[in-house]
Design a binder for these strands. Structure first.
Lengths: 104, 104
DNA sequence: CGCCCAGTTCGACGGACATCGAACTTATTT
DNA sequence: AAATAAGTTCGATGTCCGTCGAACTGGGCG
């Protein structure tokens, strides 16, 4: 078990920005931040297949943005906000707080 | 003259993140932020051709990150930090302030 | 005027990546 | 154990995008 690591070392700022540059992943992170706690995989995406979602989870995890948790047979993703703030203060928190459209 | 617009409407947060997800462009923005004022094109990049740099300038401009200035026959790029902070508070300022590697 | 320099535009090329379905794995349930 | 469900992995496919050189443009200058 645990063939897949639940957590990865924090990536570079570049890794984080590349991860967030995809609309699907940005939305995932937004939901995770909005919830403030771990969310079940299925509640994190719409409009893409399961395999695509799994791919995005992997990218987020390897960038250091999220970690995986197994609770009651289900898989949850948790935003590593504390670690992110420690490594890149304000970056993720301001991004998830920002409006989707430019507040003009 | 001015066949190319000097400034574009502020893009979405997605546009900004996509623009910053490229290492060359992130470095450009870093230099602009570090200088605190407009910088001549030639001082903004290394390792890529002139045409590639021009392409990146365009992407940054269209995302709303920069504007063009013409001073004494030379072209300068200026980071639109004020507008960016107004639209997406803290996003760009925290990114340029962040270390390249995760400060772990 | 003719030259050069700075920057943009235009194709073209190649690699990277988002996407999917299918097959596999693991755990839970009956 | 068999079956179902949840996620991951694997290939394949198509598209997007970063890159370049060459050609064009616009200015300054001798």
């Amino acid at each position: 078990m645990e063939s897949v690591p639940a957590i990865s070392p924090m990536g570079t700022l570049q890794d984080v920005l590349e991860a967030l540059s995809d609309p699907v992943r940005l939305e995932m992170v937004r939901r995770l931040a909005g919830a403030g706690e771990a969310i079940a995989c299925a509640d994190l995406y719409e409009g893409v297949s399961k395999s695509t979602a799994s791919h995005h989870f992997k990218v987020l995890r390897e960038a250091g943005l999220t970690e995986r948790l197994h609770i009651g047979g289900q898989t949850y993703q948790r935003l590593r906000l504390d670690d992110l703030e420690g490594s890149f203060p304000g970056v993720v928190s301001s991004i998830v707080a920002a409006p989707r459209e430019a507040g003009r």
